[in-house]
Simulated assay, not measured.
Amino acid sequence: MANDYSWTCPYCRQVATIKSDNVSADTHSFDQNNKHGHLGLRTNVTVCPNSKCREFTMTAALYKAEYNPNLRIVGKPLLNWSLKPQSSAKPFPDYIPLVIRQDYEEACLVCALSPKASATLARRCLQGIIRDFWGISKSRLIDEISELHGKIDASTWQAIDAVRSIGNIGAHMEKDINLIVEVDPEEADLLLRLIEVLLEEWYIHRYEREAHMQKVIAAAQAKTAAKNGGNP
């Protein structure tokens, strides 16, 4: 590999510098006898350099290819595959309800193949988040979202409001969550990015805050016990 580059591991989420000993790449060529002409399949395996992770990712991309005089891939990829992990879903901790994580992960998995199916799953995931975290339950997702106004910080509300006002997303949220509605890939991706923000801002921040407070409480109790000769 010619140059080192920055890379974010999809498993541990750490930013790392990838060097030649962390990556393996190769190209398999197809001859001109197939109806699409000369093609090259480029595979790439990257190992996370984080000693606590060491997971690997595997991707593949199909290109036009030519010999001049050696094999050379040409232009942008015709097709891309993420083989491991299979989607762009971020890993979220187990204390987030399983059904929410499953809907989110499946929505990410099918986003490229079927944006409308992805958006349907993402809409159900969003409703599950609001009902579980805030205890808000209305007949329509749009009404549940409206109920959040004034209960959450301004920047989070602006993100929610911005996504629900784009293209078919707004209409998508006003319908039955199980009804499949046409959305374009960019809209489906925006809905997934919103879900990631909410999982981070609500569940993870709350968990980390409570964990930090428990450490403070435990430290204070230990200090009090020490002053009292070991008694609380």
Rank of each mutant, 00 (worst) to 15 (best):
D132T: 10
V183Y: 10
A225D: 06
E210Q: 11
R164L: 15
R209G: 01
D189L: 12
R72L: 06
P85R: 04
A154G: 03
S6E: 14
T43D: 00
E105I: 10
Q158D: 13
H149S: 13
E174Q: 13
A159C: 08
D94W: 01
R72W: 02
L194D: 09
H38L: 12
C125H: 09
I129S: 12
A188C: 09
G150P: 01
N68C: 01
L41S: 03
P91V: 09
M213G: 01
L198A: 01
V163D: 03
L191V: 14
N70A: 06
A162Y: 12
S29E: 14
S118H: 03
G167S: 09
T8D: 07
T59S: 11
E208K: 09
Y207V: 00
I166L: 14
R101P: 02
E174M: 13
N228S: 04
H28D: 10
S137P: 00
V181E: 09
S29H: 13
D132L: 02
F56Y: 10
M173G: 07
L71S: 05
I136M: 10
F56P: 00
D184Y: 04
V15E: 14
L83P: 02
R206G: 00
H149W: 00
A61V: 03
N231K: 13
T46S: 04
I166D: 09
A107D: 08
V163T: 10
K116V: 07
A65Q: 05
V23C: 00
L121P: 05
Y63H: 09
D161C: 07
S155F: 08
I73M: 07
D103L: 14
E144K: 06
S51V: 13
G150N: 09
A112W: 04
C108M: 05
Y203W: 10
L148Q: 05
W202I: 05
Y207E: 08
G150T: 04
S139A: 12
A89E: 07
L148F: 02
T43S: 11
R123D: 03
Y67K: 07
D103W: 02
F92E: 01
G37Q: 04
A107I: 08
I166E: 12
F56S: 11
P10V: 13
I160A: 11
D94T: 07
Q221S: 10
G170P: 03
A117T: 06
D189Y: 08
L148V: 02
A226W: 03
I142P: 02
V110D: 04
M58Q: 10
L71R: 04
E200I: 01
D4S: 15
A159H: 10
Q32F: 08
